[in-house]
Amino acid sequence: MDEVIDDPRAPAFDFTVVNDENAGIYEAILDDREIAGLPYDAAGDDRLVLLATSVFPKYRKQGIATELIRRVLDDVRAQGKTVTIMCPVVRAFIDHNPEYTDLVDPEHPGVAKGHR
């Protein structure tokens, strides 16, 4: 979680984010391999439940989680969906980037603000 709070710089790697809708995961891909992921459950047609952000140890503390979360939330916004947050790392990201607060479903917010 420190990465999201303390590392506002761009990630050291230029990775691609792929939404594998069949598996229910956004994957960060670098050189044809997954380096991080953010699994989700679809809750109807208009909401995603974001479950847990993970970054492979070799790639931690380099801004990968921050950028993955940002791109996932940008994609959610582009689709006109909302999110329920079950991942404390995503919650911390939104706490520190209030421009994404509007994406949190008011009836199903998930992890409480400030929860760590």
Rank of each mutant, 00 (worst) to 15 (best):
D2W: 05
E3A: 01
D6A: 07
P8W: 11
P8K: 12
P11Y: 00
P11R: 00
A12W: 00
F13M: 11
F13N: 10
D14S: 09
D14M: 06
F15K: 01
F15Y: 05
T16A: 09
V17D: 02
V18F: 03
D20L: 05
D20I: 08
E21I: 10
E21F: 09
A23G: 04
G24T: 09
I25R: 13
Y26T: 05
Y26L: 09
E27C: 05
E27A: 09
I29A: 01
L30C: 07
L30P: 01
D31P: 03
D31L: 12
D31H: 09
D32L: 03
D32F: 01
R33E: 13
E34Y: 00
I35N: 03
G37P: 09
G37F: 09
L38F: 14
P39Q: 10
A43K: 14
A43D: 15
G44C: 04
D45I: 05
D46A: 13
R47P: 01
V49L: 13
L50T: 03
L51Q: 11
L51Y: 00
L51M: 12
A52Q: 13
T53I: 14
S54L: 09
F56S: 06
P57H: 04
K58G: 07
K58L: 08
Y59T: 02
R60I: 08
R60H: 03
K61E: 15
Q62W: 03
I64K: 05
A65I: 02
I69V: 15
R70P: 12
R70K: 14
V72D: 06
D74H: 03
D75K: 11
V76G: 12
V76C: 08
V76T: 14
A78D: 13
Q79D: 14
Q79K: 15
G80A: 14
K81C: 09
V83H: 12
C87W: 11
P88V: 09
V89A: 15
V90F: 12
V90D: 05
A92E: 10
I94Y: 10
I94M: 08
I94C: 08
D95L: 05
D95V: 02
D95Y: 08
H96T: 12
N97H: 15
E99K: 07
Y100I: 05
Y100Q: 04
T101Q: 11
T101D: 14
D102R: 09
L103V: 07
E107Y: 02
P109C: 06
V111I: 15
A112C: 00
A112R: 08
K113T: 09
K113P: 07
G114Q: 11
G114C: 07
H115L: 04
H115M: 05
R116T: 03
R116P: 01
R116G: 07
